[in-house]
Computed example of a mutant assay.
Amino acid sequence: MKTSVQLTIPAEADYLDIVRLTLYGLAVKLGFEYEQIEDMKVAVGEACNNAIIHGYEHLGSGELHVNFEQQLDGLKICIRDNGTSFNYQQAINRTAGALHTTRLSDAPTGGLGLYMMQALMDHVEVNTTSGTEVILTKLLGRKEEMA
């Protein structure tokens, strides 16, 4: 049986602990290791912060909809806002160009969140048709060992 837990919270940083605690509880129940849970918490926190800071920047306030869905082989987390969308491919291209031509110590603040999510999760999908939806998937049993 697939388990699904849904949260709707105000798009404010003060409420992100609710998302992190829910994620932690579900991930422990599903058998994820501590390091995997910490990676998920960072990635989900980044997606939520992006929605709060960028999605509702010009709108003042809004809501975040977070859905945790147990998969046969892991956990899928959808973070959705109804705020201002952005051009995902343009953002990736702009950041990729900056990463290849700039020393890390000189990189501008912001813009690396999408890369961080991709590094920490097994699958990342971004939909920007109406608002923004970030879908993060972490698979059970995958080890993050360096080769």
Rank of each mutant, 00 (worst) to 15 (best):
T3G: 09
A27R: 03
E69C: 00
E133L: 04
L26Y: 05
K143I: 05
I53L: 14
G25F: 04
V19F: 08
A11N: 12
I37Q: 02
Q71I: 06
G83V: 06
N49G: 13
Q118K: 15
Q6N: 14
T102L: 05
K41R: 15
I92R: 00
M146R: 13
G110Y: 03
L139Q: 14
G31A: 03
Y34R: 13
A27C: 03
F86I: 02
N50F: 05
N82T: 08
V42T: 15
M117V: 04
A96R: 12
T137I: 06
K143D: 03
G45P: 06
I92S: 02
I79K: 07
L7C: 02
N127H: 14
R103C: 01
M146C: 11
D106Y: 00
N50G: 10
G113P: 11
G31I: 03
E12C: 05
A13G: 12
M40L: 03
V134H: 09
Q118T: 05
I37W: 06
V42N: 14
G62T: 07
R142C: 10
A13D: 12
S61T: 13
E38S: 15
L112T: 01
A96P: 07
A47K: 05
G74H: 03
K41N: 15
C48P: 13
L114R: 08
I18T: 12
L99D: 02
D73M: 08
P10C: 04
N50E: 06
E12P: 10
V19T: 10
E133W: 00
A13E: 12
N49F: 15
V124A: 09
M40D: 02
L75S: 01
M40C: 01
Y34N: 04
T95C: 07
Y88S: 08
L26M: 10
K41A: 15
T128E: 00
D81V: 01
M117R: 01
E12A: 04
V5F: 10
D106F: 02
I92N: 02
G131E: 08
Q6F: 03
E133M: 08
E63N: 09
I53F: 13
D73V: 03
G111R: 02
A43G: 00
S105M: 06
G55V: 01
V42Y: 14
L139Y: 14
